[in-house]
């Protein structure tokens, strides 16, 4: 009995210290965001002792953040929806349809993941510019509407689904689209959730592309807004951390919501364990 208690205590201790390490940057951020400017470097770093809520007010009024939030939300949701749908379609085709050059095409798609973004920055910008999409939502969304990584994710997941399900549907007279939308997608909530989390976080945190394709303050996104606190001449730590706390909240909420779906997905498909 005692040994059991001890084991439990040990496990909880380990889990708690792991959780603390994971939460540390966030605690530090929140603590700093509530400090008066002169105390930024003073202990304690992880427990707020000061409560300068005015930092949040100041940070919020530093730039047109409501507009930045709206822009980021439109961009992130647009990218998440299109990346998930288009990558799922592509992943399904690469996993199930037989056509010449399928594997070559798949490796080409994977290959694009090895090209660093700065190399394609200028050409992408020129294309978007010639389409007249500078300072528009389509300029922010369309160039990132598919993701090689998400295609890879979906393809690998679809390969793991039993073919028999689809064959049964085929015999019942379903066509490929019916199979995809009625059979495959409902079984795919774990991979949809995973892909959506990645897409949303990528879009929400993206900095360089939104900066390059927007020229006016009214089309800027929140990450560009955050850069206003990290100037050439110094960093406004307390304001930067206050703004970061505000900015990170939707990402955390999105993650928590998707995470529940994620777990549900695993339990309801009945394909695991």
């Amino acid at each position: 009995m005692k040994a059991k208690h001890f084991k439990k205590l040990l496990i909880h201790g380990l889990l708690l210290s792991g959780a603390f390490i994971a939460a540390m940057p966030f605690l530090w951020m929140i603590t700093t965001s509530l400090k008066p400017p002169g105390k930024v470097y003073d202990a304690p770093l992880f427990v707020p002792l000061y409560f300068y809520w005015s930092n949040y007010v100041k940070a919020w009024s530093f730039a047109p953040f409501p507009r930045f939030f709206l822009n980021s939300a439109i961009m992130a949701i647009g990218i998440t929806l299109s990346q998930t749908l288009l990558s799922a379609l592509a992943g399904y085709a690469l996993a199930r349809l037989k056509f010449p050059g399928r594997n070559t095409l798949f490796f080409l798609i994977l290959g694009t993941m090895m090209i660093p973004f700065p190399i394609t920055l200028i050409p992408s910008f020129l294309i978007v510019n010639s389409l007249g999409w500078i300072d528009t939502y389509q300029g922010l969304i369309v160039p990132r509407a598919v993701s090689a990584f998400a295609i890879f994710l979906f393809r690998q997941f679809f390969l793991s689904l039993p073919r028999e399900l689809e064959e049964a549907a085929l015999i019942d007279g379903a066509n490929r689209f019916t199979i995809f939308f009625r059979i495959i997608l409902p079984l795919s909530s774990p991979v949809i959730a995973t892909s959506a989390i990645f897409s949303f976080l990528f879009a929400w945190n993206d900095f360089l592309w939104p900066l390059v394709v927007t020229n006016s303050t009214r089309m800027r996104t929140i990450q560009v807004g955050l850069a206003m606190f990290q100037g050439q001449y110094g960093i406004f730590w307390t304001l930067l951390m206050a703004a970061s706390t505000i900015v990170i909240a939707p990402a955390i909420i999105a993650f928590l919501v998707a995470q529940r779906r994620f777990v549900e997905g695993i339990t309801t498909t009945g394909l695991r364990g």
Binding site: L121, I122, F125, N129, L208, L211, V212, N215, Q232
Partner: peptide, 25 residues
């Protein structure tokens, strides 16, 4: 006068892309 803030570290990149595309301020 429409003043647009561009983060300092990226200003040169931004100006260079603007010059290439003729979309300069």
């Amino acid at each position: 006068i429409e003043a647009v803030f561009v983060p300092g570290a990226e200003l040169l990149t931004k100006l260079q892309t603007a010059i290439i595309s003729g979309k300069t301020p």
